[in-house]
Write a protein that binds this DNA or RNA. Sequence first.
DNA 1: TCAAAAGTGTTTGCTATACACCCATGA
DNA 2: TCATGGGTGTATAGCAAACACTTTTGA
Lengths: 222, 222
Amino acid sequence: MTHTYQYPHPAVTTDVVLFTIREDSLQLLLIRRRNAPFEGRWALPGGFLDIDEDLERCAARELAEETGVTGIELEQLRTFGAVDRDPRERVISVVYFALARVENLHLRAGDDAADAGWFALRALPELAFDHDQIIRAAHERLVTELSRSKIVFQFLPETFTLEELRRVYEILVDAEIDKRNFRRYFLTQGMLEPTGQLCRRGGQRQARLYRARERDPVAHLG
Amino acid sequence: MTHTYQYPHPAVTTDVVLFTIREDSLQLLLIRRRNAPFEGRWALPGGFLDIDEDLERCAARELAEETGVTGIELEQLRTFGAVDRDPRERVISVVYFALARVENLHLRAGDDAADAGWFALRALPELAFDHDQIIRAAHERLVTELSRSKIVFQFLPETFTLEELRRVYEILVDAEIDKRNFRRYFLTQGMLEPTGQLCRRGGQRQARLYRARERDPVAHLG
DNA sequence: TCAAAAGTGTTTGCTATACACCCATGA
DNA sequence: TCATGGGTGTATAGCAAACACTTTTGA
């Protein structure tokens, strides 16, 4: 069955840039393409929009189909539509970005993906389409959102220690952060809630566990 | 001539939210639709993407065709794609936003627009499609970008007085701003360059004129 | 001479940064 | 007992906010 229009229509796809922290580095999820074009190359998980499907739902579906990853909060990044970005036809791609705690994810390659895996942002393979540009834009967004919202907690498990939180920050901003200033900041900001629990995560002395408070208390005032 | 695809394709459009400051209020540019659907309703300037046309170029072209406005810097805002946002067919709209000094613009209604005009954000008419949602998103973006970049200057003429700049800020944040703190901030930030000229803009005493420096001097260090 | 807008400094509190040692515990 | 990571306080400088009067000039 075919579909006919009076004017030419571009195809619309969605792609997802999913970041996580793994092995002490910022990594993202790629799939190896099973089909042409760019067969065998690594690419962002994504695919064609169904005609009666919401954009964000499409992104979530393609992510699940190709990598097995589900239950991730997606945020729209930007739409990429350069005329020659896909050799087959004109393709407009609406790109989403997301963060994940890696231990929650059950990775497996899906239908259109020969393989799926995590890659350090600093050591990406050669990519299909304009996905290197897309990833650069997503990384910029990640850095600017860091200071403006509470997204760091999406990298961490439900409960975590202050030192774990600090380590995540250090990886994200790629710099050392003073331990005492960091602790004071988070302990006085009120976005953390002590669980009362202690834990030992490899170190000797036990550390206090915290969880992220639902919302920034200041936000309630607006 | 018709165009046929193996799978259904959505249509892709671009729309533009163009803000300006006029009559002491924040206003934006709307056109009155000449054709169905929503014939006679006010809407954002925009239209269908040509198959070999860059997204941003499409936005600029439609803006020019429908309103006569040219030479505006466009920034991508977000893509809207709810399944039922257009009654004709599935339409994905890539929305751009932009700021303008109103005195530079030569407004005139174009082919697909029965009329074009400025409307205060606080007193919008009933709008076509989901354009009220789009405008709300654009306004949010405007407010957050205000503090993070130098976009205010896009509302002002080449040279301006500190009091004019302050008045623009007051309209944008919808609050009073302390005159002395405001002046000190801008005079010490180094983003203004005194022209050495004076002018009288209706008041009695003459005021010094400034222009925006090309770049934030701090940005050069990065 | 007065009305109307331009211009000018100081104080105070908060926030960001720099910086070094003690504590608890398992091996 | 020592190695490892968790936990703690103070001093300083820069920034944000509050606040009221003088100057210029045309009408």
